[in-house]
Write a protein that binds this DNA or RNA. Sequence first.
DNA 1: CATTGTGAAGTGATTCACAGCA
DNA 2: TGCTGTGAATCACTTCACAATG
Lengths: 235, 235
Amino acid sequence: MGSAGGRKSGGTREERAERGIPEATVARLPVYLRALTALSDHDVTTASSEDLAVWAGVNSAKLRKDLSYLGTYGTRGVGYDVNYLRYQIAREIGLTQDWSVVIVGIGNLGLALANYSGFASRGFRVAALLDNDERRIGEQVGDLRISPLDDLFELVRSGQVSIGVIATPAAAAQGVCDKLVAAGVSSILNFAPTLLSVPDHVDVRKVDLSIELQILAFHEQRKAAGLAELKVDVG
Amino acid sequence: MGSAGGRKSGGTREERAERGIPEATVARLPVYLRALTALSDHDVTTASSEDLAVWAGVNSAKLRKDLSYLGTYGTRGVGYDVNYLRYQIAREIGLTQDWSVVIVGIGNLGLALANYSGFASRGFRVAALLDNDERRIGEQVGDLRISPLDDLFELVRSGQVSIGVIATPAAAAQGVCDKLVAAGVSSILNFAPTLLSVPDHVDVRKVDLSIELQILAFHEQRKAAGLAELKVDVG
DNA sequence: CATTGTGAAGTGATTCACAGCA
DNA sequence: TGCTGTGAATCACTTCACAATG
C-alpha cells in the first residue's frame, strides 16, 4: 500500500512513510492530537482506535488508516499508547519546534487573534502585530506593540517568522499578501474575504466567516423546505 | 445525470435539480457568488465559465459542473449573465431571505464577530449577543446590549433565530450548544476548539484557528525538509 | 483473542473531452 | 464559431472486512 513505492520490508523508520500523506489525513492530525491531549489530561494511558475515534469524532477505520500513513505506532490486541502517539503526531505536524506568527491588520479580529490563547498553547508564538494605520502604531496589545507594516522585512529576516496571518479588510489583503511573500513568508492564513494570488511555493489557507454562514443557511433552507413539503403532503 | 432520478425532459424549473447538490459544490457556491458580485461591481454583464473560474480561483470545468447542478443558466457560445446567475445562486443558497444570528460568548472573538460588517452585508442579521458573565450583561456593543444566556428560549421563539454562533471557551461550548439545540436552533457555527455532540437534525460547522495553523505548519515543515535534503544532496 | 494494519471494494469529487446549441 | 452542459474516465477519500499479531 502507500501512495509512493511499494517497498514492503527492510525500510528503516525514516523511510517508512514520509512521503505523500493525503491532504484529508493531514487536516485530521490536529484533531487526533487534541483528542490525545484530552485523554492524557484524563489520565488515560492507552486507547483503542475506537476510543480515539469517538473522542475525535471520526470512524475508527478512518482513524486507523490515517495513522497508518505515519507509521506503525499501535499494538495489536491492545491499542495505542496515548503519550507516545501524541508525541509522534506532534512531531509529524512539526509541533516539536516553535512557529512564529505575524498578525497583519489589528482591527477587531486582529485583536481577538492577538489575544487568543490557543495560539501560544500549541507552539505558535505571536512575534509581531502590524498595521498600516498610523494612529494605531505604538499601541500596546498584551505584551506587544503595534508596528508599521514596513517593519515586515526586518522582522522576517531577524525573527524567523514563518507564518503570516492576514486580518485586514478585503481591499488591503492582496497588497499585504504580496509584501508577506516578498519578505519571504511562505505560509499564510487569510481571514479577509477575498481570493489571494500567490506563487506556487506559498501555501494559503482561508477562513471565511460569511461563507460558513452561507453554507449553514443553504442547509437550513433545505430543512425548512422539507418541512413545508411535509405539511403540504399531510394537508 | 443528476444523482436523483433520471427524468430527462418535461421537468419544470422547480423539478429540475432541487435534490442532492454535492456538498463540495455547496461549499463553493458562496465563492461564486462573491466572484459574481465583484464582476457586477466592475460593470461586467456577461462572463464565460473561464472568466468566472479565474475570479473564483477554480478551474472552469469544475465551475460548469457545479452550476449544472443548479439548472441551465448559461448560453452556449456566450457565457453567463452575471446578474441573473448571481440571483439564481443567491436564491439557491437561501440569501433571498434574511437570517438571524445569535452570538454566544462575547469575549474578544465574540466582539469581533459582533462588529464584523461582512455578516450584515450578506443578509445575516445579528439578533442578539449572549454571555454568562454577569459583569458583561447590559454592556452596549454597537446597537445591541449583551443579554444573559437564559434569554435564549425567548429570543429563538420570538425572533426566528435560526443560526447560533458559539464563541465561548472550549469548556463552556457543549453546554451552550445543548441550550441552543433545546431552544430550537438547528444550525451552529462553532469557534470553540472542541467537538460538539448534537442530534442528527442539527448542522454544526467548525472554525478552528489553531487547526488551520497546524496544517500550515505541517506543510511549512515539509518545505523546509525538502530544502535541507537538497542542500545535503548538493553538498 | 481483541485490536491493529491494510488490501480491496465502494463512494464521491474532479477533470477530460466533445456533442450540442445559440 | 465559441462556449456550455455533461457523459465517461480518472483520481482521491472512505469504508469494509479480515489476515496478521502482540
